[in-house]
Design a protein around this nucleic acid. Structure first.
Lengths: 170, 170
DNA sequence: CTTGGAATGTCAACAAGGCTGACATAAACT
DNA sequence: AGTTTATGTCAGCCTTGTTGACATTCCAAG
């Protein structure tokens, strides 16, 4: 618990690697970087009376058009009631379209309208711009390391979801 | 905006580097990893009727004992009113002590009590455990890249704060 | 020294977005 | 057919963000 001392997990080449202080720096880096990560879309959204929750819904509907509410729930990791509130406003505002499933009429399939896609574009452009600058400044090897660590930090469940999306994408 | 195409910023060695698809994977990795990052402390906190805001306050008071409310505000990036509510409960519960400044009586200097330090320990232990596993699995070079990218992703202001904390720590 | 403004922190009220509970509808199983 | 399970919606609560109003303290100009 005291700083400077190497922490519990020491094995092989990691002798002087994982001090509590270094872990804490990693924690704080995550905290401050996440603020930067969300800052640009947040600015756009606040002008529109939307929040981060709307952004997340729009992002993943764009990523997997026709997805069901239930599927979106698993990706986002919130309750269906919470997601529903957000979807309701997006549908009312004409950014998202909800179609009753044909094989299973309990399901609603979600799509972005043209207007929804337009906002999605604005938001991703802003977020990608920052990511692009950061990636370029850091260089390809740093980016590879960045992704490796982030993947290792996810829960197993989320890593599976992430991987599935990744492979469906490219 | 279409995937597969290399994005705007192309320069030198980065020829095939920054496609929109890769940037989007970075964005999604951040999203899913941050969930994992906060999951363990969140579980502990929910048993105690505290939230992430309490965790953040406790973390940085521990990191910089005697800090003022105003200073904490700049670190956390929320309004003083919002922080104040959290601090009030922590003080009422005896986890944080607030002392009126001696040179400037408007200021309140914040300290963790023994009980506060105990909770801080539980929370950081949980969060560090995950970070340690991720770092170990990823290896030292990946960790270096991880930190480089995160730093590049911060706003200038936050990067300064982060660096100041980092240098005061080790 | 006093007075007006700036800095610091507190209290109150509101909004976004988490949560659980209750419920309607459709499907599936016995 | 009748019960159980899955999906989605509506209502209400809690945390934590926000702005507005205010008390206290400091400091600088007169």
């Amino acid at each position: 618990m005291a700083d400077g001392r190497p922490s519990a997990a020491i094995s092989g080449e990691n002798l002087l690697f994982l001090t509590d202080e270094q872990l804490r720096q990693g924690i704080e880096a995550m905290f401050f970087a996440y603020r930067g990560f969300t800052a640009d879309p947040d600015r756009i959204l606040s002008d529109l009376a939307y929040g981060r929750a709307h952004h997340r819904a729009i992002h993943f509907i764009n990523r997997a058009p026709g997805t069901t509410v239930n599927n979106l729930l698993n990706i986002l990791g919130v309750t269906k009631q919470s997601l529903n509130r957000v979807l309701r406003t997006l549908i009312a505002d004409g950014l998202v379209q909800s179609r009753v499933g044909q094989s299973d009429k309990r399901e609603r399939h979600l799509f972005l309208t043209d207007e929804g896609r337009a906002l999605e574009g604005r938001l991703s452009d802003a977020q990608r711009a920052r990511m692009r600058t950061a990636f370029r400044d850091a260089g390809p090897e740093a980016v590879a390391g960045f992704r490796t660590v982030l993947e290792a930090m996810m829960d197993t469940e989320m890593r599976r979801t992430y991987t599935r999306l990744k492979e469906s994408g490219a």
